[in-house]
Each structure stands twice: as C-alpha cells, then as structure tokens.
C-alpha cells in the first residue's frame, strides 16, 4: 500500500503540466466535436426527410387508384 501511495504522490506532482496539456488537446478537439454533431443532425434529419418524401410519393400513387369520394375525409 505504501508503494501505491508513493506512486500517487509522484502523480500529484505532475498535475499542473498535464492539466495544461489536456486543455490544449480539448480545444483542438472542437473541430472533431462539431463534425460529429453536424453529422448526427444531418443523418437524423436526412433519414426523416427520406422517409417523409417516400411516404408522400406512395400516398400520391395510392390515392390515384381510389375514387375521390372514398377519401373525402382527408
């Protein structure tokens, strides 16, 4: 256990430098984060749009086969 504590003491000594390094990495990562965020939104909205458009096309094709009076409720 003492060995562990000794190791931890050394760890603590190195703290400041590492925090500075971490902050630098974090700011560099922003571009990557934005890319993922945009990819996420684009993927979701594109998928929904695709489903909506295909659904509308199918609806139009089906509606043509049905006489007007049967779908007056729409």
């Amino acid at each position: 256990m003492t060995a562990v504590l000794a190791v931890l003491a050394t760890l603590a000594d190195a703290a400041d430098a590492a925090v500075a390094a971490d902050a630098a990495v974090a700011t560099e990562d922003r571009g990557f984060q934005w890319a993922l965020v945009l990819a996420c939104w684009v993927a979701v909205l594109a998928a929904v749009a695709l489903v909506a458009v295909r659904s509308a096309q199918r609806g139009r094709r089906l509606a043509r086969q049905i006489p007007e009076e049967q779908r007056r409720w729409m």
Partner: peptide, 15 residues
C-alpha cells in the same frame, strides 16, 4: 483522481 503517468510506451497508470 490525480493525474495519469506513463509507465510504458502505451500504458498509463492512474487512480
């Protein structure tokens, strides 16, 4: 907690 230290090429040690 604390910070990680490198103990080998791609091995780190932390608590």
């Amino acid at each position: 907690e604390g910070t990680a230290t490198d103990v080998a090429a791609d091995t780190i040690r932390f608590a």
